[in-house]
Simulated scan of single mutants.
Amino acid sequence: SARAATAREQDTAAREHTRPYDEVSEQVETRLEGEQVRRCVRGLTELQRQAVDLAYYGGLTYREVAETLGAPLPTVKTRLRDGLIRLRDCMGVTA
Score class of each variant (00 low, 15 high):
residue 92 G to H: 09
residue 27 Q to N: 09
residue 15 R to P: 00
residue 66 A to D: 02
residue 87 L to I: 08
residue 24 V to P: 00
residue 86 R to C: 02
residue 78 T to A: 14
residue 29 E to D: 12
residue 7 A to W: 03
residue 31 R to C: 10
residue 87 L to G: 05
residue 54 L to A: 03
residue 2 A to C: 06
residue 8 R to P: 01
residue 79 R to I: 00
residue 87 L to Q: 05
residue 82 D to R: 13
residue 10 Q to F: 12
residue 14 A to R: 11
residue 37 V to W: 10
residue 49 R to L: 10
residue 87 L to H: 06
residue 78 T to V: 12
residue 6 T to A: 11
residue 55 A to E: 02
residue 14 A to H: 05
residue 13 A to E: 11
residue 56 Y to I: 02
residue 3 R to Q: 05
residue 60 L to V: 04
residue 15 R to S: 07
residue 49 R to T: 09
residue 66 A to C: 00
residue 6 T to M: 08
residue 60 L to R: 13
residue 10 Q to C: 06
residue 51 A to T: 03
residue 94 T to A: 14
residue 85 I to F: 04
residue 32 L to E: 14
residue 39 R to V: 06
residue 94 T to F: 14
residue 88 R to D: 08
residue 87 L to C: 06
residue 12 T to H: 11
residue 3 R to F: 04
residue 5 A to F: 10
residue 81 R to D: 00
residue 43 G to S: 12
residue 21 Y to S: 09
residue 57 Y to W: 09
residue 89 D to I: 04
residue 25 S to V: 05
residue 67 E to W: 01
residue 94 T to N: 14
residue 16 E to C: 08
residue 54 L to T: 01
residue 94 T to I: 12
residue 63 R to A: 15
residue 69 L to T: 01
residue 5 A to S: 08
residue 89 D to Y: 09
residue 58 G to E: 01
residue 2 A to M: 13
residue 93 V to T: 14
residue 24 V to H: 13
residue 22 D to T: 01
residue 95 A to M: 05
residue 65 V to Q: 04
residue 88 R to G: 12
residue 8 R to Q: 05
residue 23 E to V: 12
residue 12 T to A: 15
residue 36 Q to T: 11
residue 36 Q to P: 00
residue 64 E to F: 04
residue 5 A to K: 04
residue 62 Y to M: 11
residue 72 P to L: 06
residue 45 T to D: 10
residue 59 G to P: 00
residue 79 R to E: 07
residue 20 P to H: 08
residue 76 V to N: 05
residue 30 T to L: 14
residue 35 E to I: 08
residue 28 V to K: 12
residue 56 Y to G: 00
residue 29 E to K: 14
residue 50 Q to M: 04
residue 44 L to S: 02
residue 39 R to L: 09
residue 67 E to H: 03
residue 47 L to G: 09
residue 24 V to Y: 10
residue 17 H to C: 08
residue 80 L to C: 02
residue 77 K to Y: 13
residue 33 E to A: 07
residue 71 A to L: 14
residue 86 R to L: 06
residue 74 P to R: 07
residue 48 Q to P: 01
residue 67 E to A: 09
residue 19 R to C: 08
residue 35 E to V: 11
residue 49 R to Q: 12
residue 70 G to Q: 04
residue 88 R to Q: 14
residue 35 E to Y: 13
residue 60 L to K: 12
residue 53 D to P: 00
residue 32 L to M: 13
residue 45 T to M: 07
residue 23 E to D: 08
residue 3 R to L: 12
residue 44 L to W: 02
residue 12 T to G: 03
residue 78 T to N: 14
residue 67 E to R: 10
residue 22 D to C: 03
residue 85 I to V: 09
residue 67 E to F: 00
residue 39 R to M: 05
residue 13 A to V: 04
residue 16 E to H: 08
residue 95 A to G: 15
residue 77 K to T: 06
residue 56 Y to N: 03
residue 17 H to A: 15
residue 75 T to W: 10
residue 42 R to S: 11
residue 86 R to N: 09
residue 54 L to V: 00
residue 88 R to Y: 05
residue 41 V to W: 02
residue 94 T to D: 14
residue 39 R to H: 06
residue 15 R to Y: 04
residue 76 V to W: 06
residue 3 R to P: 00
residue 42 R to K: 07
